[in-house]
Structure formats: structure tokens, C-alpha cells
Nucleic acid binder design. Structure first.
Length: 100
DNA sequence: GCTTTGACTCTCG
DNA sequence: TCGAGAGCCAAAG
């Protein structure tokens, strides 16, 4: 059982609809906190691997931050959901971005 | 219990 | 437009 903070992060992540992405910043804001980095760390642990779509979370500028199983894997997953990726960056970022 | 670190973000030169 | 530096919070060592 992760910490309460982490659980909240996972809760929010699960709400991200398919074919859309969100940012660490938005998640942090949803939680009423500024712990952007802590959000990233929480997703890095990600005990609910298949349940929580952590691959739909990227940096605030559309750059694909990182992924525990490799950045390539993350991009592949996103592309399979209809999101266009180019050079580790989201195409049409702002159109696929999901804000809370 | 203090120190370090990280899948981040913003500001400034 | 781009790179470097500082700030931020929570978790792990």
C-alpha cells in the first residue's frame, strides 16, 4: 500500500481518458499541491502498472518525460492510442492534453 | 531525523 | 529561441 499522496496521484491518472494525455503539473494542481516531482516519483513506483495509465502523463511542454520501462515503450503505447509522437514530443499538444 | 534525489516547472540571461 | 540555475514537495537512504 503506497502512501496517501501516491494513491491520490494514481486516482487522478486513472481518470485520464484514452487518446488524451495530461501533465505532471495538472495532476499536482488537481491535488492542490506543487509537488510536481513527487508526482513523477509516485508514477515511477506505479504499483498499479496496468490499471493506472501512467504513460499518458508528460511534461508541461509536451515533452515525453520518462518511463520506467523505457521511453520508447511509452511512446509506443501513446501512438497505439492515437496520439502522434515526434522526437519524444507530443504532436498537437494542447489538443490531446487533458486538463482537470 | 537529517540529507539526498527525482518520470518537474519556472525564470532569467 | 535556448541553456543554465533556482525552487518545489514527497519519498527513500
Amino acid at each position: 500500500m503506497p502512501t496517501k499522496f501516491q494513491s491520490k496521484v494514481y486516482e487522478v491518472c486513472k481518470k485520464i481518458p484514452k487518446g488524451r494525455v495530461s501533465t505532471y503539473k495538472e495532476i499536482a494542481r488537481k491535488l492542490r499541491t506543487k509537488a510536481y516531482r513527487a508526482v513523477g516519483s509516485a508514477l515511477n513506483k506505479n504499483p498499479y502498472a496496468p490499471i493506472v495509465p501512467c504513460h499518458r502523463v508528460v511534461n508541461s511542454d509536451g515533452f515525453v518525460g520518462g518511463f520506467a520501462s523505457g521511453i520508447k515503450k511509452k511512446i509506443k503505447l501513446l501512438k497505439s492510442e492515437g496520439i502522434k509522437i515526434k522526437k519524444n514530443r507530443i504532436n498537437n499538444f494542447g489538443k490531446v492534453i487533458f486538463k482537470f
